[in-house]
Design a protein around this nucleic acid. Structure first.
Lengths: 123, 123
DNA sequence: ATGCTACATCGACACCTATCTATATTGACA
DNA sequence: TGTCAATATAGATAGGTGTCGATGTAGCAT
């Protein structure tokens, strides 16, 4: 239903502010999906949790390894870990009484490559 | 003031849940800084704005180029652009009546390399 | 069975943020 | 100078989110 409203200068050749498009931009759906994943990353507590897990042998750590270093309550840590699992950045595995969280290999690469492909110049 | 509370298994050699640390993790300050920048990226409207600007010739676009494609009000677009400038992802330049926003070259690379260095395995 | 320990869920609260409308500001032009 | 167009700022509001304490759940040990 969008009416074409005064395409300024289009017919008259008047200098317009706009530079021409040279490539397609990200779709609304892709932007939403990327933003959702980035939101999971965009928190200092969650970055520290991911970094702590990455620093552990096998990129694997249990909650008891993580609560004290980040200085947050156990329920809060549990909440953040759930966010990271839901975002596909961690996997959860129960081992007896303990729960181990492990980095998903390549998950970060997927994010950064999407960022690069949509937000950078093609040469 | 933290008292050392029952370092379980430390003396007895009992199997503990925890895997050993093999590397240092991100600092609290670095995590905060990275999260702040990522928050600027973690919004679908801002991702679309960045992508639109990247798709323009010279990675440069004026506000009038951006308002209609993202489908948001002009003040909202202006707000998002300010967030991106404050995050160091865009630069702002006034040209007569119009204002042009330009991608900061390499800004995205800085983010992704920080992510990679803190959150991935060292081989 | 009972209790203990590790972790998750619930409910509440304070704070942040995305969005809008209305208005101000700034520059071009007649 | 006065008007118009492009953009920014202000104020308001609805919804999201990080945090906590309290409580629930599940597995191990005695």
């Amino acid at each position: 239903m969008d009416l074409v409203l005064t395409p300024v200068g289009a017919a008259a050749g008047v200098a317009v502010c706009c530079t021409p498009l040279t490539a397609p931009s990200i779709s609304e759906a892709d932007a939403l999906a990327l933003a959702t994943t980035l939101k999971a990353l965009a928190d200092p507590a969650r970055l520290r949790l991911l970094s702590l897990i990455a620093a552990h042998e096998g990129h694997d750590a249990c909650v008891c390894d993580l609560t004290e270093p980040v200085g947050l309550s156990q329920p809060t840590v549990s909440h953040h870990l759930k966010v990271l699992v839901d975002a596909g950045l961690l996997t959860r595995e129960k081992r007896g009484v303990w729960v181990h969280y492990t980095l998903v290999p390549g998950a970060l690469d997927v994010i950064t490559s999407h960022l690069a492909s949509h937000l950078t110049a093609a040469a």
